[in-house]
Amino acid sequence: MLIATERLVLRRFRASDAAVLAAYRSDPEVARYQSWDAPFPLERAELAVRNFAAGSPDQAGHFQYAIELAAEPALIGDVYVRLHDNLKQAEIGFTLAPAYQRRGYATEAVSAVLDRLFRLQGLHKVTGECDARNGPSAALFERLGFVREGFLRQQTFIKGEWTDDLIYGLLAGEWLRD
């Protein structure tokens, strides 16, 4: 376990998570605004889980937190962090299985990761980016205090179309104010 909240455990991925990862990433609505296509084959999930497990949340590079329910060990999603080489900035992203959306789990998980990044690791800034059509992700960033710093028109070519991107930023001083 890396982080515990009232309802969740954020931990390193394990090999046994591959089937659940493949299942929620195979949902067309989950994959809609993400870089992968649905279906997400089990073999690809197994490779992804191995790569996730090899990362470190304290070293520059990519790390994926597995989100698990505390009451019943069940993988429900993940939080992605790319820690910059300077160890003072990061990018964050999140994915939640549809059955667990709209219950506050994503807010709780991302908030816990932000707390770790700012309070424990001493980061200066965390950014996030989402497809401009992804209202729930944009709302989550804003609910957590991120400031919309940009609207990039036709920024990303994904799944056969150009999409607009929203850029969000959160400074340590804004997060630590409370």
Rank of each mutant, 00 (worst) to 15 (best):
D165F: 01
F40Y: 15
A22C: 06
D165E: 14
L10T: 04
K125L: 09
A54G: 08
L10H: 04
G55F: 02
I3Q: 03
S26E: 07
E149R: 13
W162G: 03
T163N: 08
V126P: 03
S35K: 05
P57T: 08
D78G: 11
L21W: 00
N86K: 02
R143P: 03
T156Q: 15
P73S: 13
R116H: 09
D85W: 04
G93W: 08
Y100V: 00
F118S: 02
Q34E: 14
Q154P: 02
E149I: 06
V113T: 05
I92N: 09
I67H: 00
Q64H: 07
N86F: 02
A112E: 12
T127C: 09
A38N: 10
L123N: 06
L21T: 04
L21N: 01
A48W: 14
Y105E: 00
E91I: 13
G145E: 07
P57N: 04
G93Q: 06
T163L: 03
T127R: 02
F40R: 11
T5L: 05
K159S: 08
L83K: 06
L171A: 12
L10P: 05
S56C: 06
V30Q: 07
S56R: 11
F40N: 11
H62S: 11
A112M: 07
Q59F: 03
A15F: 12
G122S: 06
F151K: 07
E149Q: 14
A15C: 07
A54R: 11
Q34N: 13
P57Q: 06
E161T: 12
D131G: 03
P73K: 12
R153P: 00
A60H: 13
L75N: 00
Y168V: 05
